[in-house]
Design a protein around this nucleic acid. Sequence first.
DNA 1: ATATATGGCTAAAACGATTTAGTTTGTATC
DNA 2: GATACAAACTAAATCGTTTTAGCCATATAT
Lengths: 343, 343
Amino acid sequence: MKKVSISDIARKAGVSVSTVSFVMNDKAVKMRISREVIEKVENVAREMGYRPNQLARGLRTGKTKTIGLIVENISNAFFATLAKTIEDEAKKYDYKVVYCSTDNDEVKARELINMLSQRQVDGYIITPTPLLADEIKKLQAESKPVVLIDRYFPEHLEIPAVLVDNFEGVAKGTEYLIRKGNRKIALVTIEADMAHMKDRLAGYYDVLGKHDIPVDEKRVKIVPYHADREMALGMIAELLDGTGKDIDAVFFLTNYLGVLGIEAIKKKQLKIPDELAVLCFDDNDVFRLFTPTISVIRQPIESIGQKAMYVLIERLKHPGGTESYPAAEQLQLETELIARESI
Amino acid sequence: MKKVSISDIARKAGVSVSTVSFVMNDKAVKMRISREVIEKVENVAREMGYRPNQLARGLRTGKTKTIGLIVENISNAFFATLAKTIEDEAKKYDYKVVYCSTDNDEVKARELINMLSQRQVDGYIITPTPLLADEIKKLQAESKPVVLIDRYFPEHLEIPAVLVDNFEGVAKGTEYLIRKGNRKIALVTIEADMAHMKDRLAGYYDVLGKHDIPVDEKRVKIVPYHADREMALGMIAELLDGTGKDIDAVFFLTNYLGVLGIEAIKKKQLKIPDELAVLCFDDNDVFRLFTPTISVIRQPIESIGQKAMYVLIERLKHPGGTESYPAAEQLQLETELIARESI
DNA sequence: ATATATGGCTAAAACGATTTAGTTTGTATC
DNA sequence: GATACAAACTAAATCGTTTTAGCCATATAT
């Protein structure tokens, strides 16, 4: 049983291909197709189980009603939730989303853009890797709308981005740790090769400075991007060895590092919050359920997804592109401090 | 700047469209295109940044090199990991995967199949909803290969499926709980509207029977599919109220229920494993990191993904379809009991 | 000298839609 | 009775590829 095409229907209904197309696209009235022919065609189409071929349609119209979503890693809770929100949001605007993970690999990221471009997606939502700006500018040059999420390029503000105020989020967290009496605050972060991580780091340094707390680089652990689980765990464990002497609190700058941190803390059986105060950027089931519960700086994931989608749709609606939007949107959303038991 | 097409290249290189196509598809030698023309075309294509339009290609060839993956919910850890594995696996065979979630909704599931079909995916990997068999058989009738994962239709063994031995997994778990001295074993499951959940349930009843433990329906909590978080949490809490009197152990039959269970247990401050032994089907970060750590029946997620992909690829390679594969594969993989502290 | 091969390409159909510009028939207008 | 207009369609171009069949030289075989 082969697929039914528009001409199969035309043949069976005894009308032309064009007529069928008009009926299937609700242009029948505009094209003054008679009531009876409309019904006839609709019936035949239903009986034969017609499903329009989107490849053909996309080829002809130049629109696929599909947007490409590139995240760092779809199996990470933050991105999985974000992807789900964006998918749901896209549905409202009658768009479909196809998503894929870069694993923070420049080459893979380029391949993915290439693949999405070949599949003619109408727009992109991207969690970029550090060197991706040029590739993204190429998309813009082809007048394909792009919105960045979670990260941005400070030197390319013409690329719209939706993210949280990372500086303020970490500053708020650090402030809170200090207010609760901690002064030897350790930090665990990934390589700050992108601006959003630099902003987080800056938030920490800034607040320490304001409180005249000297910066001790031994307290700042930078996990390289391509460290595997074991290596990262080892580095965190090493930092935590200083508990009691060198550090009295630890601030994890990502969800993933936080979960690893919890694992290390559990192994060492550190007493939270007495021996060590703990705070993490970005929430997770593990933090809610660990004993004691872990305080976090929460990112408004749903809002990020919604706003990103909104900005993208606006650009899709006005294909004028660059001209109609001289100043690209750079949205910074508020984070929320959720105080639990760990501090 | 518009996209470059094959004819742009042809024009610039001073050759025909066909020649360019042959060169781009490595058929140049077979088609005896001269060394110089090949190089010429390759250079022009590179300079102009040519990216073949996959819509056009798919339309012409009938193959999109894309497979559709339908899971229950991409933000659930089990499915997210599965999706990642399948994506990685697909890449090895040079296929791209587009994924989407049913949220266990029959209507949405049908819409998704429809959407993937319209986009002409070459094959499907599906976590089905209970009534989806007829829709899937339609795909098979169009000779589109389908492989089910995680679930199956006992009355439609002609649809290949890759899943774990659910009966054996739960039986093993129940056996273990009994061996450790528990006799009042509670069970939390979702509505068993599909065979895989019936199998899990059967594993429990079977082992209780073997040990002459009378079945007490009060100990079996069946959470309806469309219960929201709060409702499910309430039901579990109610069951756990019997701890000490009516129940001495609880077995969660899914990852999601297990996490909710942990939340309820934490709220009630039950002592695990003294007051209550806990076991869950399917692992999760939360179980590894909770105090005490929670024992689980682990599903081999990577293997499921790999085997499913393998079965699908085999069918894609031999488009003979139904004839060449009279007996559809029904693979049942082994689960693993990971004993931690909760029992 | 004619037929046959082969090397090196190209023309054109096809895939399944959308869309513009007609065509045909019937009716109203002047 | 010619002209205009509307109603109800249809023909054909088009989107960007792939692929089959064929063209035109030149070389080789008979």
